[in-house]
């Protein structure tokens, strides 16, 4: 069977204009990966790493500057909006901020029946209403919520509405772009559990974008780590957390303050950042404490450590993990 999503050598360059001066920003550079049916692929990175841009290109909210995107085996890279429409129904996205992603002037019923009309799934008002109620139950909301507006809900409920909207078209695949980072931790747990239940109930495949390693660990089967527009490491979740190979991955893990006061990472962060830089070398050079002469001269390729563990580093880590949260 075809992988449900396949991206090859994806690149995105943004042009910005500042007082007439045009500058180019490369947000995504040569990103390739596949997503198999039924898996949850995690995409982790800090702000500006390009993770959101990748997610948006897959559902064609942005067009890549070069490279290819195949959805269920079909190359959709150059399809126009009309030709892409059947895919839009099957490939959905949920955004980070439920405050800005829901039209404040529409009720829940209007918000959720819209996709049914737009995609020609159901035109009959009564049947639309029944379908909406069915999906509302799926996400833990009720009939009484039908005629309310987004501002009448709490953040968590609003994100439930946003998830419900993505589910209306019975998609096979959903990009979840930081779906819980605007929520409080107790509510985040509710939404994460809901997303796991929905995935099992509807045979969904997820691309889960987050900057939170704990969330990624809980949700994902496999993880891609992005840094400055490139994938720097890719591995099954368990392996990534027990034996990270890229210094950046380990650095991210060490940076998370653990809620257990007995687990401490005493690192000298104040002096960690050095002023190393090189035009040709590794992007992570300026923050790396393992740099070799090679790292200044040659940009590292993404190489295989094992059949499913890739890393972009001249001097990958071999020590055991720093992730202490298991067990």
């Amino acid at each position: 069977m075809n992988p449900i999503v396949q991206v090859e050598d994806l690149k995105k360059v943004f042009r910005t204009q500042n007082f007439g001066r045009v500058s180019k920003i490369t947000a995504v550079e040569g990103v390739s990966f596949t997503i198999q049916r039924g898996e949850t692929l995690g995409l982790i990175g800090e702000s500006g790493s390009g993770k959101t841009t990748v997610g948006r290109m897959i559902v064609k909210l942005l067009n890549p500057s070069s490279g290819h995107i195949k959805l269920d085996g079909h190359d959709v890279t150059h399809l126009n909006e009309k030709a892409f429409k059947p895919f839009r129904k099957r490939f959905q996205i949920v955004f980070q901020d439920p405050y800005s992603s829901l039209n404040p002037r529409m009720t829940v019923l209007q918000l959720l029946s819209r996709p049914l009309s737009v995609f020609g799934i159901e035109k009959d008002r009564k049947k639309q209403r029944m379908k909406v109620i069915e999906v509302l139950h799926d996400v833990g909301l009720h009939e009484e919520h039908l005629n309310r507006y987004p501002h009448e809900f709490s953040g968590g409920q609003r994100q439930r509405v946003a998830v419900a909207r993505a589910l209306m078209t019975k998609p096979e695949f959903i990009v979840l772009d930081e779906p819980t980072s605007a929520l409080d931790v107790s509510v985040q747990a509710q939404i994460l559990n809901l997303l796991r239940q929905l995935k099992a109930a509807h045979n969904l495949t997820y691309l889960f974008i987050s900057h939170d390693l704990g969330v990624i660990h809980y949700m994902c089967d496999r993880v891609l780590v992005m840094y400055m527009g490139e994938i720097v490491e890719s591995a099954p979740t368990e392996e990534l957390f027990t034996s990270p190979a890229h210094p950046y991955t380990r650095f991210l893990m060490e940076s998370i303050p653990d809620p257990d006061p007995e687990l401490t990472n005493e690192i000298d962060y104040v002096n960690k950042v050095k002023a190393l830089q090189s035009t040709y070398g590794c992007n992570f050079l300026s923050r790396c404490d393992r740099a070799l002469p090679n790292c200044f001269d040659r940009h590292p390729e993404l190489v295989k450590l094992s059949s499913n563990h890739l890393v972009r580093c001249h001097n990958p880590l071999k020590e055991a993990s720093v992730w202490k949260r298991d067990g």
Binding site: D184, V185, Q188, A189, L192, V215, H217, M219
Partner: peptide
Amino acid sequence: RGLLESIPRSRKVRELRSIPGSV
């Protein structure tokens, strides 16, 4: 206790404990 249990840490956890409702 609920807050601490809500923090996602590991995939080995079958289901996160969450606090029902909202503030």
